[in-house]
Amino acid sequence: MDFKRIQLLLLIFFLVFDIYLFQMLLARSEVNSQVTTQIETTIEEDLSARNIRYEELSKETTTLPLVKANSSDLLVENLSQLEGQNASINDRGELISTFNEAIPLNIGLDRTTETLNEDQIEQLRANFLSQPSYFIEGTAYDSFRYLPDERIISIRMNAYEGRMIADGSAELRLILDENYNLIQYIQTYQDHIQPLSTERNIISERMALEIINQRADTTIPDNSTITRMRQCYYRSSNLEDFDIYSPAWGIIYRSEDGQSGTVYIDATRGTLIEHRKMDLNI
């Protein structure tokens, strides 16, 4: 067999082999496409089968920065401005204060109140949060939530463009008595909150729910209602001179027996945030 004939046979062999590899690649791409389609429908089918109610899940992704906050002794340094209360700082840096007498809020709270309206929020800001004898830097807290079962008004500092710090490290928690008067509060504070220059990719709310649904230990109970999904921040690094806050998804649900729960996902890594790092109510 001459050399040219061997070359021709080799050329034919490699040509046929390349065609075979190309066909295999097409087949694998088709399988991957089918798997992807299956994944995209699994979360909706699973939630429906478990009778979990929810709003339409967004697939939109975005970018958000990490946020830096400086360590601060502001609460310690300004304790003397507070009047009519017994205030102290514990070893975790929380200001805990009890008023000498219960303070009527006069904003219309009663047993039927489930949320605060804008008028109630403005009254709290004007009549209480802005008063330095009541609170230190009270107007720095912007994100309001009322917890009717506990009679607590939780007010959080925001990290970036209205996204609050949800882990309890920048919170003013007002505790009310059975007559909805203010009797005590717990305060934490972060100073000079500012975004860092680098933007991070944020997973969609649909992807965050998929991550939760894949874990047995964080599965939302059957027959629940997902009441809200919102972007927030949590303290991901606690350093000596400053803290770093990362974006997160908070998935809030109400179970069949009326109990509320929240599960948090790191929105940049797509990982579950341990409960010990988070305050469980958004």
Rank of each mutant, 00 (worst) to 15 (best):
L64K: 08
F99N: 03
I39V: 14
A27M: 09
E77M: 08
V67E: 01
R92N: 15
D119E: 15
L57P: 15
R28K: 09
T139Q: 04
L79N: 02
D18T: 14
E45Y: 11
A126Q: 10
S88L: 04
T41H: 13
F128M: 02
P132L: 02
E101W: 01
L75P: 00
L66W: 02
S97C: 02
S48D: 06
Y141T: 00
L64N: 07
Y134F: 15
T62L: 02
G138T: 01
S58A: 07
V16R: 11
L64I: 09
K68M: 09
S143A: 09
L47F: 12
S33V: 11
R53L: 14
L105T: 03
S97D: 01
E45P: 06
T41R: 15
E44P: 14
G84L: 05
Q38M: 14
L47V: 07
L109Q: 01
L64E: 07
S71M: 04
L75N: 00
Q120C: 05
V76H: 08
F17D: 07
E45F: 12
I96K: 11
E56N: 15
F99G: 08
E55D: 15
Q34M: 04
S130E: 10
R92A: 15
G93E: 02
L116C: 08
Q131L: 04
F14A: 13
I96A: 08
F135M: 01
R50I: 07
N127D: 14
P104E: 03
L95W: 00
I43A: 11
I96R: 12
F99Y: 11
S143P: 04
K59T: 15
E118S: 10
V35S: 05
T42I: 11
T112I: 14
A140H: 07
N78T: 03
L124N: 05
K59N: 15
N117G: 07
S72Q: 07
E55Q: 15
A27S: 12
T139A: 05
F17I: 06
T115C: 03
A140F: 06
E137C: 03
D18F: 15
Q131T: 05
D73L: 01
R125C: 00
E30I: 04
T112A: 15
R28H: 06
G84E: 06
S97L: 01
V31M: 05
L10M: 01
T42A: 13
D18Y: 14
T41M: 14
D73M: 02
E45D: 10
Y141Q: 02
A140Q: 08
